[in-house]
Design a protein around this nucleic acid. Sequence first.
DNA 1: CTGAAAGCGCTAACAA
DNA 2: TTGTTAGCGCTTTCAG
Lengths: 339, 339
Amino acid sequence: MYLAMNNKQLKLADLAKLAGVSTSTVSRALNDNPLIKKETRDKLKQLAKQHNFSLNTAASRLRSQKTNVVAVIINFDSGTEQSINDPFLLKVVGEINLALNKQGLELLLSNSFMAGDDWANYFINSRRADGIIVVGQGKDPANIEAAANAGVPLVVWGDPKTPSNYPIVGSDNFVGGRLATEHLLAGGAKNIVFLGDPGHAEIGERYRGYLAALNTANARSQVVSIDITSRAAYHGINQLLVTQGLCFDGIMACSDMVALGAMKALKERYISIPNDVALVGFDDIAMADISHPSLSSIKQNTQRASVLLVEKLLAQLQGQSAESQVVEIELIYRQSSKG
Amino acid sequence: MYLAMNNKQLKLADLAKLAGVSTSTVSRALNDNPLIKKETRDKLKQLAKQHNFSLNTAASRLRSQKTNVVAVIINFDSGTEQSINDPFLLKVVGEINLALNKQGLELLLSNSFMAGDDWANYFINSRRADGIIVVGQGKDPANIEAAANAGVPLVVWGDPKTPSNYPIVGSDNFVGGRLATEHLLAGGAKNIVFLGDPGHAEIGERYRGYLAALNTANARSQVVSIDITSRAAYHGINQLLVTQGLCFDGIMACSDMVALGAMKALKERYISIPNDVALVGFDDIAMADISHPSLSSIKQNTQRASVLLVEKLLAQLQGQSAESQVVEIELIYRQSSKG
DNA sequence: CTGAAAGCGCTAACAA
DNA sequence: TTGTTAGCGCTTTCAG
């Protein structure tokens, strides 16, 4: 048995034997339990590292009834083309991942295909995850509400002003819509088109902000309701130009991707941006800075929001309650609009 | 005890009691084991659904030593600004998620922050996941190699021509680089700049394809080596124009984001695209179609690649071996280059 | 085709 | 500060 292949996977008991202590001591040490003397803890941790030992998460989860996993569901509206490729949503997922990691939590990426409709059952009863972060409210909150009512720790990225019995973190979309519109008005725009789908919760708020700004200025509103994609925006603006000519001098787009689609339609017809039509987007994705002209946009603080989402989820995991919260928003002024 | 709150989480044994069968029968039925009569299976499955029952994955994983989870690691080069926000990488993750889901596998999203350097230990020994999909080779394959050598089921999205003892799936980058360059040459370009970092494995192949095409045409090469971001591309082209003037009439960009950065620099100086400078990108992200002028690009078939990655991982999980594989590539001709 | 029973590897209550 | 021990809920071998 000399030099036998060290094939077998070490378990806690083996490590304990090696160290000459009990399994509980090793378990506590590796979980950094202060009951164990610091010295012993450090020694055992080092032994574990030396032997390339890792706790079996399956066993640990079974015993402790905790997973340290959070499910993140990207919650698309059915009937939209907005997809997993949407740069903004993915940016949010990336930020959430970072925020979770900082708390020692892992991210199980999911979608409705796997999770079905009964999220409480799929994720929580099954001990796949301890809680859920939903990215996007969708048009129908049924699944979210069902999960929240079942007592699932859950937070949502969306419109914080939506009445709900679960915490929603998101930007101040009303103020964002108002800021963008006021900025366009200040630049001299008189006929500002709202480009997007006001039926969507967050976008609805942006739309109301837009209306509020127009009201104050006694200007008229005009909505081009489209699916929230570049392509739909491109076609929407194209069609508007074909049927009604250049009947507007400003566009408040509900997202940067939508704004960029509109921009393409304008540029193809040699409509000058911002002189003939001024344009403001929403989200401040990387492309806003790199488009030509660069795109003025309302910047959403996704990093701050992600930290808040995780904090509020953690609070619920510890039995506390958490409230919806609005994250500040900011106009980034670039070339597509006039100062 | 009438109508007592059905608070307690059902377990397999409870369900078995309700059905009047043994736990093994229920377990088998829910796992669709053909040992159990189809009729019984269906009956038990329905009972489970009725009672909102879900298997405890922790227990099941502990017992069966299988997780049905795949870890996906986004493997950035250190020293690049290319980030979790890169639309192409995220698109790949999205496609992988879909491909995994179709096989009943779940996606644990990870990064080096959580996983550290010893992936075998962190993911596999700990039973967090059954296998690993690495998105991006990075410049240093040490972590990947260590994991592969430890016998971890593992596949990589990257340059399939890199010699390795693990399967790499990726595009035919050499042909992509050649196609793009040939296309620029055919459009009349004589001085084509390669914009990107040839030190990166995939981009190196694209560069070699570019060189091969230039060689055949007896044209001279010129590299602008930059970090793989829009911003770096913008500054790189700007600087080239400042120091050497318009000394080129074509750009082969190593990615669409890079191409869009270059496009901005050109447009700001009123350099006509494609007349003064023709431009081809790589990846065919959504923005390529929506930029103005729209961006010719080499389309990577990420969907096909993702399916292959999952297939090859599955093969390894079943003890079979798998080889690297090249996925076909295609030029998408748009306005930024001449026919 | 179904049941009985053992045990996966860990944590935590209780004991010392 | 550490050890002993029971048991988390499932799957699977073996027996029928």
